[in-house]
């Protein structure tokens, strides 16, 4: 029972990591790092909550989250792809801005409520027949819709990248933008588009924390999860299926931490459990050294250089 609860939660906690890392894989394959990921997670969480609370519809909440992601991504993409400015610096600026904006706009709209405002979060959806399977049923097939979507998105993303013309263009852009340019494709447009798509996915991922799971918004609810999704992208070797594997491991660590904290287990301090996903990221980053890095990653594509 405890075990199935743990795995259920692990699968659930994977959801935003999957969406975020898939977006990051797609955009990094074009040579651009979406360094605004943490900020977009947070703004997505805010927008999702705000949309859902004001409209009473979770769907509208998720749409708002994605639109906010796209908007923020457009700003990031404009500065990094078109103006060729430094990706890490721009990302840091946007993340600081987002950290202030989330709580500020919450205040603007809702003032300072005595109790945190809540919405009813996504309900689980039991898949007919499959959800009745022993153990596997409750773990895998009584999740919410967004979780199913996230898990299906990973193989879909893999197919897009490795089996379609669009994917070929994406991969080529990161590996050698000159080749794409010479083939008559606008490199900047490809990169900008990828930034927008990844930002939409990040927004959705952020909304999972606010309305997919807890049903409320708080400014510290992301707490570096965006960066973990970012890390999963390269721990998974820029492959959606690799990121899926990584996300599962992190989901289990996250779920184990929460389960242990609530079970009154006191052999290790709670703080250690909270730090566990971050420690895991460091360990994985250190151990995973041989990469298949997109060759132009992080380097702005400057055409008229001489």
């Amino acid at each position: 029972m405890i075990l199935s609860g743990l795995f259920f939660r692990a699968i659930q906690m994977c959801t935003p990591l999957l969406l975020g890392s898939l977006g990051e894989v797609l955009v990094e394959r074009t040579g651009v790092m979406n360094m605004a990921i943490e900020g977009i997670f947070l703004l997505g969480a805010w927008a999702g909550f705000t949309g859902a609370y004001l409209s009473g519809s979770l769907l509208i909440g998720f749409v708002c989250a994605m639109l906010t992601g796209v908007l923020t991504g457009a700003l990031y993409g404009w500065i990094t792809v078109y103006l060729k400015q430094h990706q890490i610096v721009t990302g840091v600026a946007l993340n600081i801005l987002a950290a202030g904006l989330g709580i500020y706009l919450y205040r603007v709209l809702f003032g300072v409520p005595l109790l945190p405002l809540t919405v009813e979060s996504l309900k689980p959806f039991a898949v007919p027949v499959l959800s009745d399977l022993p153990f596997i049923g409750p773990v895998l097939f009584r999740q919410n819709v967004l979780t199913y979507i996230a898990f299906l998105a990973m193989p879909a993303g893999w197919w897009l990248l490795f089996r379609t013309r669009t994917g070929l263009i994406l991969r080529s852009t990161g590996a050698n933008p000159e080749a794409v340019d010479a083939a008559g494709i606008n490199v900047e447009r490809v990169q900008f588009g990828a930034v927008l798509v990844s930002s939409a996915l990040n927004g959705l991922a952020g909304a999972f924390y606010s309305i997919g799971y807890l049903g409320l918004f708080s400014n510290d609810m992301i707490g570096g999860r965006g960066w973990i999704a970012f890390a999963l992208c390269f721990l998974g070797n820029w492959n959606p299926l690799g990121a899926l594997l990584g996300a599962l491991i992190f989901g289990i660590a996250d779920a184990a931490a929460i389960t242990l904290q609530t079970s009154g287990f006191s052999l290790v301090p709670n703080e250690f459990l909270i730090a566990l996903p971050y420690i895991l990221t460091i360990v994985a980053t250190v151990l995973r050294t041989q990469f298949n890095v997109p060759a132009s990653l992080g380097t702005p594509y400057i055409k008229e250089s001489k």
Binding site: T164, R165, I169, S172, V180, A183
Partner: peptide, 11 residues
């Protein structure tokens, strides 16, 4: 690379 149609159909 880059030849139309770039509509996501299998190569």
């Amino acid at each position: 690379l880059g030849l139309a149609p770039a509509d996501g159909r299998p190569l």
